[in-house]
Design a protein around this nucleic acid. Structure first.
Lengths: 128, 128
DNA sequence: TATTGACTTAGAGTAAACTTCAAGGATTAG
DNA sequence: CTAATCCTTGAAGTTTACTCTAAGTCAATA
């Protein structure tokens, strides 16, 4: 069992964000101490791991929430979840390919400016 | 010379967004017809190409605006621009590597759920 | 026991990047 | 010439994902 601060340290999400995620339905109701403090289980941590993974690959919190709701409904939603993940995976791959293309352009521009800089600096030297 | 609609079609940015970018200083003052309509040059289009490239690799409009201001100041800012692009390039590469790692996890999860689905469907079949 | 500091809540505030609106002027097809 | 369409502006509104605030509760320590 982990306090909100411990989970914050482990996940890199702020305590604020963890409460926010819970409010938005991304985590099933987190257990509490008698005093009302949150107590995260290993299971919660694992769920957060998947959430971060989906978030960091560009899934919106709304879609993640949708996925979590499906999970909560048990095995009869397995097919839907597989479809959702498959689509997400495709979109990530597509975005990465796009990114690669843009990266090449950035690299090209960088080389172009580097060359221009070298020429400029050579010119400056000559003037001094 | 292109109208705002033509540029919108060419770049995929809405006319609204094009005006917004201009207001935010991402484009140098676009020329106008006597009637006040925007007339984009080939140069503007090229600048927009770089802007989209930087934006699509995750640079904020603010940073892009900064880059554009430097460009406007001529060759003496070449070094700064090269530095900026180099840092951006590094960050893109890092993000892509991270993405790759997350993608593997998504793939793993997908396979896990696929397997679970197969087992579930086999079970269902047995029950019918 | 008192106080410090972490925790609770609902709700307001923020930043980025648009997007829409209202009101009006310009251009063009019929 | 006129209607339809496109363009102009400044400003307000929207969405996402937080982030912060205020007012109060809980737990541990000097």
């Amino acid at each position: 069992m982990y306090s909100i601060q411990e989970v914050s340290a482990k996940t890199g999400l702020s305590a604020h964000t963890l409460r926010y995620y819970e409010k938005e339905g991304l985590l099933s109701q987190v257990e509490r101490t008698p005093g009302g403090f949150r107590q995260y289980t290993e299971e919660d941590l694992e769920a957060l791991g998947l959430i971060c993974c989906l978030k960091n690959t560009g899934m919106s919190l709304q879609e993640i929430s949708c996925f979590v709701q499906l999970t909560r409904q048990g095995d009869r939603t397995l097919k839907e979840r597989v479809e959702l993940l498959r689509r997400h995976r495709e979109s990530v791959i597509e975005r990465m390919n796009e990114m690669q293309k843009y990266l090449e352009k950035v690299t090209w521009k960088l080389n172009f400016f580097s060359e221009k800089l070298r020429a400029y600096e050579a010119g400056q030297e000559g003037q001094e």
